[in-house]
Write a protein that binds this DNA or RNA. Structure first.
Length: 332
DNA sequence: CGTCTTTGACCGGCGC
DNA sequence: GCGCCGGTCAAAGACG
């Protein structure tokens, strides 16, 4: 485990949930319980210590609950911001980024046909603005640059903007198709060294001059997740989709990346919490039980949400692998 | 017939 | 300089 993580009290995975003194006693060996009753005086300091510990746990749970509420609120704000950016990006596409000559691809190609495209692909500032809405995973890519010598390889002058999208896919579905609203033409497939699953290479086929490229490969760790890596920005509007309204923002049905579908579950937690708070107002003795209910619901919902959410798995894999690469001594 | 996918060959960057 | 490897090309075939 990452020492940094274990040093962060607020990130501790041990939530101390469920108050073992209440509910878990039945699972303990009976002999131990009887011993406690037989030696009440001797155990008194331990009881006090346990109570102190219980209070500490309760306090920690309370802080976690507050933190979760805060995160949920921030998530809502970010999501609405994301929605706005998607809408505004669509407008920008129709007005400002319609710049077919952003690269040299549209015209004739020099005899040294290769390697030219990546150098001249992305130069539009409007595209850079537009890019922000894509995916948080782009930041993970840039972490490579901050973490050491791989940064040297990057051609800083013309590095195309790269973003990643994680899409849940049926493992039995062998096609490396990520429905993102654009039309793609596959131009290559390759098995890479670090992943037994082949990587497919796509180019945007909607506009011949569009410099965007896409690589799709199953995650090496979880083959139910397709990792789509986008390079560059579309210089055209999104093509209309056959079974969707034209004015709809890009919202592929099963994408799981930066915008996580557990949004609604967070709301569910908040709803349960509100119910519990309402119960608290009902009577004096119910306060402790209600608070306990809040904590339990929060913890259960959070655990359920995280374990069910493929995007969380993907993000976890990305984050962990990134940290491992950062912390591990250079291999080979 | 046009478009798309497949796939082996080729190219160029990079490490040794 | 050589070999490895990721990325791309382009011919051939599939498909609607």
């Amino acid at each position: 485990m990452d020492p940094w993580i274990s040093s962060q009290p607020s990130l501790s995975l041990d939530l101390h949930v469920g108050l073992p003194t209440l509910g878990l006693g039945r699972h303990q060996p009976k002999v131990l319980v009887e011993e406690n009753f037989l030696q009440p005086l001797k155990k008194e300091p331990e009881v006090a210590a346990l109570e102190t510990e219980l209070q500490r746990m309760s306090e920690e749970n309370r802080r976690l609950a507050e933190a979760l509420t805060s995160v949920a609120a921030k998530y809502d704000a970010l999501r609405s911001q994301y929605t706005e950016m998607v809408a505004s990006a669509a407008v920008h596409n129709t007005t400002t980024t319609n710049n077919p000559s952003s690269g040299s691809e549209g015209g004739s190609v020099s005899p040294s046909r290769k390697r030219k495209t990546s150098e001249t692909s992305m130069d539009t500032p409007a595209a850079a603005h537009h890019h922000q809405h894509l995916h948080l995973a782009a930041a993970a890519d840039q972490m490579e640059c901050t973490s050491g010598e791989p940064c040297k390889r990057i051609r800083e002058e013309h590095k195309p903007k790269v973003s990643k999208l994680y899409v849940h896919a049926d493992p039995s579905d062998l096609s490396l198709v990520v429905k993102d609203g654009y039309q793609w033409r596959k131009y290559g497939q390759k098995v890479t060294k670090d992943n037994p699953c082949p990587r497919a290479y796509f180019r945007c086929s909607f506009a011949p001059a569009c410099p965007v490229k896409k690589k799709v490969q199953r995650s090496a760790d979880d083959n139910t997740i397709l990792v789509a890596t986008y390079e560059g920005e579309h210089n055209h509007v999104q093509p209309p989709r056959k079974n969707a309204a034209v004015t709809k923002p890009p919202s592929p049905p099963r994408q799981v990346a930066a915008v996580a579908p557990h949004h609604t579950q967070v709301h569910h937690q908040q709803h349960q919490q509100q119910e519990a708070v309402a119960a608290m107002g009902a009577g004096g003795e119910a306060v402790g039980a209600a608070a306990e209910m809040i904590r339990r619901n929060l913890a259960e919902q959070m655990a359920m949400t995280l374990t069910r959410d493929p995007s969380f798995k993907a993000a976890l894999v990305t984050a962990l692998s990134g940290r491992i690469l950062e912390l591990s001594p250079t291999k080979d």
